[in-house]
Every structure is written in structure tokens, then in C-alpha cells.
Amino acid sequence: MTEELIIAGFGGQGVLSMGKILAYSGVMAGQEVTWFPSYGPEMRGGTANVTVILSDKRISSPIINEFDTAIILNQQSMDKFEKMVKPGGTLLYDPNGITRNPERTDINLFKIDGTKIAADLGNVKIFNMVVLGAYLKAKPVVNIDSVEKGLQQSLPARHHKLIPLNLAAVQKGYELLESVTTL
């Protein structure tokens, strides 16, 4: 198994930390992982993205130009990354972040109303965990147990009291994933 994933959205949406928690979950599940962020002169309100690769083999290139899966959380990222999903691959998006629906017909399309679900759960900051849960329904690359361990490893101890809320968000996202097109 090798999963090459891009997570892309606005800075502040928790894109990089979602990737980190997923990557740590992969470590906990015994996988090889690479987390490669867009870094540089980024600014608040600008775009942020991270490539996460999970594999049971040694990972070659951390830099890739086509992805098994794209998680897209804003329109700029849709414009940039929709075309970079491999044929037969998967695209997951939050409809609140975009102004144009994805147009590809050769990939699996899923959506998750992460913004609303997080608000309903009472904490908009767990938006990214809702999306992570939805992703894990679409692509079960790690199980929820590993995510719990990943959260324990990646969050500082003072935030461990938030783990149940984060896991609830993952669970909600998992339950509420909507399929748009399945090949």
C-alpha cells in the first residue's frame, strides 16, 4: 500500500496539522511516512498545502506531481490540484470553501460539510479533524486506534484533554462523508 496525498487550503484551516496527525497515525500503524509542507514566504490568508505519503515500503520521492488523493479546502487549491489527481484517484472537498464544483469525471469525488459539522460540534477549530475523519472513510489508510495514538504523540501533553473532542470530530466526519461520484 502506498498513499500519496495532498491536503490544500487556507493557512489557518489546520491543513499542516491534519497532515501531521495523519502522518503520526501512520507511524503508529507501523508505516513509513513523509510529510512535506509548502514552506516559504507564506502569509496569513494565503494558501497552505502539505504532501503526506504513507507506505508499507521505503518512500522514494517526497515531491510528487500526481496524487492518489487530494483533500481540497479552498478554490485556489481546487484550481491548482484537481488536475493533479491520478485517473481513478480520489478528490475530497468541503463545498463551503469553493466557488466551482470539481469537473473531473475520471476520479472518485467526495464532499464533507466540515465547516458546518465543526460548528455543530461547538468548536470550529476541529474542522480539520472532521475532514480527516471523512478522508479515512473514503480511504481507510489507518484505523481510528492509530489516529488516537497519533493525536497523543503529536499534541503536547497540555492539550491531551482535547483528544476526546478531536476523536468525536473524526468520528462525525467518518459518518457524514457524502459520495458525489463513484467510479
Partner: peptide, 10 residues
Amino acid sequence: DGAIGQMMEK
């Protein structure tokens, strides 16, 4: 290089 410095791996 910046890539190896900035990326996270196991």
C-alpha cells in the same frame, strides 16, 4: 537542503 530540513519523516 531546505526540503530535507523542513520535511517530517519517521
